[in-house]
Nucleic acid binder design. Structure first.
Length: 697
DNA sequence: GTCACTGGATAC
DNA sequence: TGTATCCAG
């Protein structure tokens, strides 16, 4: 459901850039003879010639439409060239298009905040660049205006006179225009430049809309295609929306739009104007109601998010009709294919973007043929993601089996072999989400995740390297006597240590209530799950089945005995004068984060204080807590992933601060100064930035 | 029940 | 937080 968001500023400059029949262009670049030809890209499907997923503009002239079948397209346009989507592992493989999309994004992101909205679309916030241009080099002062700019469409202008080009040129160079219009004009200049750069560097054409918000920019980008751009001045908005069919508006193409038509008799966006906000809220709820009310007026405050990379990766396939899967064995086979693709993409993401995914989810569509009237949805299931293709396969299958049991209402029944009780799977997909960047300077961690599994033994990773690769600036380095494991914390909130068969987890009691609800966990291995290992060190991540005392994701580093002497050296270096800091960070972070975890939605910051935090600490510094069996200097833990933690600033020990690196000291001091006013609001300490996963780029 | 596949967003 | 649902192209 859309959410209401009032416009914060009415003079933003937002662009939506949309690649023209992108998949076709990608294929045409690969095969130049296709240029200018009626062409369509079909998804592998022997049935009726495959489904069209992109159609060139030449083919559109013949009436070829997306979601026609290949055979149908041939009838309408016999000379059409049908290009197949690459197939890998028995399914469509969109990687070439994804990569081509990345090429484009890397160009479009040069001039302002860039949000990759899909494989072939981006939003740009060009406000700052446009303001700069207006200040330094306004269009009215330009001697020449590029052809691409003059070819722009300016809504509300074209029908005014006979010479459209001249009108546009005049609109761009008017000195008496409003500031808003001038900013839009600058935005259009910038977008024209960007589009030309895209063409030069990638051979792809694109279309764009330039407006004051995302909604209007998106609307405009589709109005003049291909290879053109459209500007939406303020003055044109009401007229534009008055006659716009309601279904054309983004988010209203589906059920909500249908409901507006049927239930309220609303056929154009303008028709919405007759309803009060309250009335719309009555029908559709507070959020959607307000969103509709604003939408009718061209108001949309949605921000352009800085995002060049996807938030998740998925791999899926449908098995329509007779191809539905009816045995666990066949499901497993396809699941394996999907997992292989997913794993490959996760590895690429790790190598190229240094990001790690944390959650694996399985979705399936199913129906029951015999006992079939009880329509039940196949439940999605997820679990922590373990890197490595075979681990992903294993976990995906477990998730499927858990889902299937639930779907069939057969709890605690093992589903084995080839039996089938009438169920059929018509769709399967696996996806990886909660992807976070790991900080720079963690090459060793990269190595760990990369090529683990079978090939891992070849990747020699002495833990000495692990230590050396620790980020130098991080103050948290000092809090770990054993040095470099620190890099791991940005990946996982939890570090524990293990030696021989002894494992010490510095875990917190969490008192989770709804453990038993989580069926998925029961499926997982007893304890931790290894994500990688090497001759010298092992890293684990996972959770524990036994929740009596602790729970949650944690990461374990084990360094083998052969490194004992190395560690000794390090230890003595680190120990000089660092104990206070160690204790400080440990207690601070683990304590406050524990609370944060407990009370993710409740107001943690108001109540927490350093002493309160400390009272909840695990006593890892006292020998009382079974520490004897473990080399304490090898082990340490800090929860760092969650950036928000807080403390009472009056209780911060100055001595502790003094031990920090200069740069961080200064930052904290500055923050403290800003907080020392009456009515202190406790909130994030500035230094958390150093702990958080690198925001990247 | 058949548009395939992928991904974002929201709500509970 | 995990899961369901909707939406877009």
């Amino acid at each position: 459901m859309p959410v209401a968001r009032p416009e914060l500023s009415d003079s933003r400059v937002i662009a939506h850039v949309d690649m023209d029949c992108f998949y076709v262009q990608v294929e045409q670049r690969k095969q130049q003879s296709l240029r200018g030809q009626p062409t369509a890209v079909v998804q592998y499907n022997s049935w009726q010639g495959g489904g069209l997923i992109a159609v060139s503009y030449e083919a559109r002239k013949f009436g070829v439409k997306r979601s026609m079948r290949g055979d149908e397209a041939k009838q309408v346009c016999p000379e059409i060239h049908l290009v197949q989507v690459p197939v890998a592992r028995g399914k469509a493989d969109l990687n070439t298009y994804r990569n081509a999309g990345s090429e484009v994004v890397s160009i479009l992101s040069r001039r302002g905040r860039c949000e990759r909205a899909s494989i072939d679309e981006v939003y740009l916030d060009l406000t700052i660049a446009a303001e700069a241009m207006l200040a330094d080099n306004p269009p009215e002062c330009l001697e020449t205006i590029s052809e691409e700019v003059v070819k722009s469409h300016v809504l509300g202008l074209e029908e005014v006179g006979s010479d459209a080009r001249e009108n546009v040129r005049h609109w761009f160079t008017r000195s008496d225009a409003s500031r808003c219009d001038k900013l839009l004009a600058c935005g259009a200049f910038i977008v024209a430049e960007l589009r030309l750069q895209v063409l030069e560097e990638t051979e792809f054409t694109c279309s764009a809309g330039i407006a004051h918000n995302k909604m209007l920019a998106k609307l405009a980008s589709g109005m003049n295609k291909p290879a053109q751009q459209t500007v939406v001045p303020f003055s044109s908005i009401s007229k534009l929306l008055r006659t716009l069919p309601i279904k054309k508006m983004k988010q209203l193409g589906g059920k909500l739009g249908t409901s507006l038509q049927i239930d309220l008799g609303v056929n154009t966006v303008g028709d919405l104007l007759q309803f009060s906000e309250e009335k719309l809220q009555e029908y559709y709820g507070v959020n959607t109601g307000s969103w509709l009310w604003n939408t009718a007026r061209g108001i949309n405050g949605e921000e352009v998010k800085e995002r060049l990379l996807p938030n998740s990766h998925g791999s899926g396939k449908t098995f329509p009709g007779p191809r539905a899967l009816k045995t666990v064995a066949s499901v497993e086979k396809w699941l394996n294919e999907l997992c292989e693709e997913l794993s490959e993409r996760l590895q690429s993401d790790l190598e190229q973007n240094k990001r790690i995914a944390h959650t694996l989810t399985l979705h399936a569509h199913a129906y029951k043929s015999n006992d079939g009237d009880s329509f039940r949805k196949f439940p999605s299931k997820s679990c922590p993601l373990r890197y490595g293709t075979s681990k992903i396969k294993e976990d995906a299958l477990s998730l499927f089996q858990a889902g299937l049991r639930e779907y069939l209402g057969l709890f605690n029944v093992k589903i084995s072999g080839n039996q089938n009780n009438g169920w059929s799977i018509t769709g399967l997909s696996v996806s990886a989400s909660k992807i976070v960047a790991i900080p720079s300077g963690t090459r060793s961690i990269m190595n760990y995740f990369h090529n683990q599994e079978e090939s891992f033994p070849q990747v020699k990773l002495p833990s000495e390297q692990l230590i050396q690769d620790a980020p130098l600036l991080s103050p948290s380095e000092d809090s770990l006597e054993s040095g470099g494991h620190l890099t791991l914390q940005s990946i996982e909130p939890w570090i524990a240590c293990r030696e021989g068969n002894e494992e010490t987890k510095y875990s917190m009691p969490l008192d989770r209530q709804e453990e038993d609800k989580d069926m998925c966990k029961e499926k997982l291995p007893e304890k931790v799950t290894s994500i990688c290992s090497s001759p010298d060190a092992e890293v684990y991540r996972g959770w524990e089945k036994d929740q009596t005392e602790s729970s949650g994701d944690y990461l374990t580093v084990k360094i083998r005995d052969s490194l004992e002497s190395e560690r000794g050296k390090r230890k003595s270096n680190k120990e000089k004068g660092m104990s206070t800091i160690s204790r400080y960070f440990r207690s601070q972070l683990s304590g406050s984060l524990l609370k944060a975890e407990h009370a993710s939605t409740s107001k943690l910051s108001e109540s927490s204080s350093l002493s309160a935090c400390q009272s909840e600490l695990p006593q890892e510094n006292s020998p009382a807590r079974g520490e004897s069996s473990v080399d304490a200097n090898l082990c340490s833990q800090i929860k760092l992933k969650r950036p928000a933690w807080s403390c009472d600033i009056d209780e911060i020990d100055q001595d502790v601060l003094n031990e920090l690196p200069k740069q961080i000291q200064e930052e904290i001091q500055a923050w403290l100064r800003s907080q020392k006013r009456p009515n202190t609001v406790k909130r994030d300490l500035g230094i958390t930035r150093y702990f958080s996963p690198a925001k990247d780029k």
